[in-house]
């Protein structure tokens, strides 16, 4: 039993910890386990072993650059996927009445993000619209130009100003949010007809779509470097 438990704990640790740390740590675990087994009995030693294994995994899961990068990239990927599906959903929508009656007034008030609160979007978008798109739909020259410019500005800002992490995050978030706020302003100031709102929403969402993945990667690297993890 104890041999089986030791192997299980060692396997878990080797799976979750960097290998150069895992080997030495497992050796320490064996050494202390054997001492505790002789001093206090097998049951006590096994309880200690399980508790040490559980407590030893999480500091590395939380602190390694790999995990941090993975979490930040997953967040970016989630935003990217939701936005991409929303774009496909709206591009292929043939019946506007599928959305709730409250949605369109909100849309006209410059709140297209209300789509993410719509039941129909979450229920059907994934299954229905996923394959109905072509490559040209994803190319928006104006948004691409903005995304390129924003990327260059961010890189120059990083290099020349060397901002603190908080300032860096605000700068990146600000540049990503700018087209969105600009679009909201156009909705409020000009109150365009509904047939003209599509391109405005495109200019609000596409820059985020283009920027979110490279910026997530860049930010993940920057955060792990600053936390001394890379």
């Amino acid at each position: 039993m104890s041999s089986w438990l030791l192997k299980l704990c060692s396997g878990l640790l080797r799976l979750c910890l960097p290998l150069h740390v895992a080997d030495a740590l497992i050796g320490d675990l064996y050494e202390e386990y054997n001492t505790k087994r002789l001093d206090g009995g097998v049951n006590k030693a096994q309880m200690w072993l399980l508790s040490q294994t559980a407590r030893s995994i999480w500091p590395f899961l939380l602190s390694t650059s790999y995990t941090l990068r993975a979490i930040m990239m997953l967040q970016g990927l989630f935003v990217f996927m939701v936005l991409a599906i929303a774009i496909m959903y709206l591009s292929n929508m043939d019946d506007a009445s599928r959305l709730s009656v409250e949605f369109w007034p909100q849309w006209m008030a410059g709140k297209p993000h209300q789509l993410f609160l719509e039941q129909d979007f979450w229920q059907f978008a994934f299954a229905r619209e996923l394959h109905e798109s072509n490559i040209q739909m994803w190319l928006n020259p104006l948004s691409m130009a903005y995304a390129g410019l924003a990327w260059m500005l961010i890189k120059r800002f990083e290099k020349q100003i060397k901002p603190s992490l908080i300032v860096h995050l605000f700068f990146v978030a600000g540049l990503m949010a700018l087209p969105y706020l600009w679009g909201v302003l156009i909705f409020i100031l000009f109150q365009p007809e509904i047939r003209l709102t599509g391109p405005i929403v495109v200019s609000m969402w596409f820059p985020i779509l283009y920027l979110v993945l490279p910026l997530s990667w860049s930010l993940a690297n920057s955060v792990s470097y600053r936390l001394g993890l890379s």
Binding site: A24, L25, Q52
Partner: peptide, 8 residues
């Protein structure tokens, strides 16, 4: 302390 916290 846990060995994990120590090694981290």
């Amino acid at each position: 302390v846990s060995l994990g916290a120590l090694y981290a």
